[in-house]
Design a protein around this nucleic acid. Structure first.
Lengths: 192, 192
DNA sequence: CGAAAATTTGACATGACTCAACTGGAGTGG
DNA sequence: CCACTCCAGTTGAGTCATGTCAAATTTTCG
């Protein structure tokens, strides 16, 4: 259960067996079926989850009631509304499983305890957030500078497996285009 | 010189006079005239800068040689290419002053020394990055879900003073529209 | 198997872009 | 202090990428 998460964090900072066992004892296992809403707009985000297995979407709802997908998260990623979780303010987004999922979760309490007992985790979490930030910057640039087709090709290259796991209209939403238009982009690519 | 930065960081985590004086002794002052390039594509980002005075743009250059503005940074903000700085990889972006600026900078060495001597800063920097991340998420949503006019109105509300300090075509770039189109949006708003 | 959801396709609409011409300051040098 | 240049901003015409709506088709899943 814990091997993936332990290996994953070890990449950021070397951890001793003792440190890892403190960490693991603080994690709670959570299994949820697909289509479970883990967070809704208006709620305060109660935990950060590491995905052992499964696939999760994070999205906003716009003024026309349409989903705008912010991210897909799969195995070995963390998911949460960082802002809501840390500042304890109501979230503006939704987090929902796309597949049956197994999560390891840290609540505010267990995370605080972890940071207190193993301060190294401050660094680990800082690095995780930094990476996350860098990828948003890149994505923002792509959004402004590239066409829908170019963004789609980048998506395919970056996340080839997601194409199988995630319905196409969600990918369209992630890319910031209508499902009809993504379908046309694909048709055009096939012809070439 | 240090009062702004000290007050600013105190908001995130209470710091003692001793801790602040260690911090301040590690900062280097850097004054730069307007139109100075602080970082170019291909370079590794050598420092993180807190802006005491001035205004700075961070941007990419797209395939048609056009600037795509990622952020404007003014007094009391930090600026750097976080990814490049921490992973020591070549940056893809440019950082350039728009006005004469006064900066307080941390290099990798001084930052490492700071984190070693005052580990509380791990937390402070983690919180700073988290806030930053939350604001990118919001901006990404706006980019996908809102029209150019709506984005412009939000910009005016969020950063009223920047309108005076930054030429309009740079604001257009920040909003992800052509300068001509922003001009038309403004004309339309005036008529209403 | 049947209902509901996802995808495709086509016709049409539109927001935003490009290009080019014009206007209006803000320096700068004679 | 004027004339000149240069850059930012505006405006209009034409175009293009992408959106919307509706219908047809395919896939998914209870």
């Amino acid at each position: 259960m814990f091997t993936e998460i332990n290996n994953n964090l070890n990449k950021y900072e070397q951890l001793t067996i003792q440190e890892l066992s403190i960490f693991n004892s603080l994690l709670q296992v959570k299994k949820v079926p697909r289509k479970s809403l883990l967070l809704s707009k208006g709620e305060v985000c109660k935990y950060e989850a590491f995905i052992v297995k499964g696939c999760i979407k994070t999205y906003f709802i716009d003024e026309n009631e349409k989903e705008v997908i912010l991210t897909f998260s799969v195995e070995n990623w963390w998911v949460s509304d960082i802002g809501s979780f840390h500042e304890q303010i109501p979230s503006k987004m939704y987090i929902e499983t796309i597949e049956d999922s197994e999560l390891l979760i840290l609540t505010r309490e267990t995370k605080a305890e972890l940071l207190y007992k193993v301060p190294k985790f401050e660094k680990i979490f800082r690095l995780l957030v930094q990476r996350h930030l860098a990828s948003y910057q890149e994505r923002h640039f792509e959004m402004i500078a590239l066409s829908a087709q170019e963004r789609y090709l980048i998506f395919l290259k970056k996340y080839p497996s997601l194409t199988q796991r995630v319905p196409q209209h969600l990918i369209a939403s992630y890319l910031g285009v209508s499902p009809e238009f993504l379908s046309k982009v694909r048709a055009k690519l096939v012809k070439q």
